[in-house]
Amino acid sequence: MFKSTNLDMFTFPFTNFKNKTYRYSNDLVELSGDKVNFMKITPEYKAQIKRKREMLEKQPEVRYQSFPHTMEMQWEFVELLIDLSTAKYPEHFSVEKDGDQWTFTNHILEETEVFTFGDESSIDLEPYDMIGRHFHHDYMLMVNRDDNFYLEVAQESFAALFSPHWNLGMSFDEIHGPVPFVSRDGIDLVDRIRKFLLTIEPGVPRTRVNWNLMADRWDVNYETMDVWGPQREKVTPENAGELVHLRVEEQWFIRMPRSNAILFVLDTQFLPMEDLIKRPEWLEITYFNLADIPDYMAEYKGMAPFLPQTVEYLKNLIDSMKEKDKQEKGEEHFVQ
């Protein structure tokens, strides 16, 4: 299991929830200019790509789904990823375009993709699947029809109850059917957020952060419920620091200019509970929020069987941190 090692690159999810605890809301926000490009190469890049490709190879039906009529949109996606990666990391990614003949080079992995842009027969995989395997994100393409969005292509390797296979073809509303999607004031959010998504324009993506807790796992999907369901019981206040991970999804919603589809990009990051102590403020905010998760949310997120143990672990960690602080201050006093 990999974890975020550069905490400056870790997306801490509760920055907006210091005074009020986390609830579902329309938390989509605009991005500042330098954040529009979602490419991010962290020290974990190689480990992430290795795992993502293993998933796609071992479970192609589970991890990748598309409708046959999406090829033009898939090429638009290829172009976007190549543009963004070469713009942000020219030292890691480069492209040569000779008319339709494109050569994309990934210098980190020392790999080259040579293809005829727009011609699926020039590559072995589908275009979306091919280019997506160079970047660690998960990618969902939601096609805009009749004021709704329909999932028509998906490549996924870190699921939190996400299944490309199951969700294929579903509308935004159908996909969110299982979510107890109400605001603090009891307002139903599905309709409101769908309408908001309709207003997103090309070049002005939106972002939000979703979070969950995982008990010793990378992902939980419906396909493996029989496995991870029972595993959750093994968490105790003693082992929670190591087993339980804060799982963060930094999400982008991007309007594709040609197809008008919304591309949903997820950057999934993990931090074990025990590492929160490296940022004492994060530790306290996480405890403040987790101690106040309503039952319906804990149930839905799948964390109900180990949330109390995790909260207890965090409380103990904070107490011991404060105790240590006190002692250190005391010692300083003594020395003076």
């Binding site: 073809g169 579903m170 059917g177 419906y222 419920m225």
Partner: peptide, 17 residues
């Protein structure tokens, strides 16, 4: 499960042991 997929033409079956 209570959710139906028009593409898969069935209700979701959540596996358990």
């Amino acid at each position: 499960g209570p959710f139906f997929s028009k593409v898969r033409k069935g209700y979701i079956g959540y596996p358990f042991i």
